[in-house]
Every structure is written in structure tokens, then in C-alpha cells.
């Protein structure tokens, strides 16, 4: 998937989960937990949104792979590539 389109999509998912953060302020490399005080419910909401938007399975053990925006991009690209 086109990296720019993917980032835009993930940012919009993030905004849906956490409407109180400004998408423009997201540092893609920093952990969301550290950057925005994401708690376990925020993390679950984000995982749900990503899973549903791209139609991919995300196991509970893989939640750390959604820790930052950049990590999430890699996970989604990997899954989409594997699907072919």
C-alpha cells in the first residue's frame, strides 16, 4: 500500500480513537503510550480500528507492534503483503 495513503489512514483511525489529540502532533517514532498517555483501553480501541479497517487479524501478543505509528505501518504493510 502507498505509504502516504497508509499514514493518512492510520492517523484518521487514531483521531477516531482519541479525538482529543491533534493528528498533526503525532511523532511516528514515539510510543503512543508515552506520547499521549495511551491506556490499555485506548490501545485496544486502536487495535480494533486497525484490524477492522484493513481486515487483518491482530493477536493479543502482537499489540506491542501497534505501540507507535511507525510500528503500526510496518505491521499493516507486512500483513497486506502476506495476503498478496
Amino acid at each position: 500500500m502507498d505509504p502516504t495513503a497508509l499514514r493518512t489512514k492510520l492517523l484518521s483511525l487514531l483521531a477516531g480513537v482519541a479525538p482529543d489529540i491533534e493528528p498533526g502532533s503525532v511523532d511516528p517514532e514515539r510510543a503512543l503510550r508515552e506520547q499521549f498517555d495511551f491506556d490499555s483501553m485506548d490501545a485496544l480501541h486502536f487495535a480494533t480500528a486497525v484490524s477492522e479497517a484493513f481486515g487483518i487479524e491482530i493477536a493479543e501478543t502482537e499489540y506491542p507492534r501497534l505501540a507507535s505509528l511507525h510500528a503500526a505501518e510496518q505491521l499493516v504493510q507486512e500483513r497486506l503483503a502476506a495476503r498478496g
Partner: peptide, 8 residues
């Protein structure tokens, strides 16, 4: 994912 439970 949406149906999973959390510790809390």
C-alpha cells in the same frame, strides 16, 4: 480484537 477483554 473488538470483543477482547482487558485486565481492568
Amino acid at each position: 480484537v473488538k470483543d477482547r477483554l482487558i485486565d481492568a
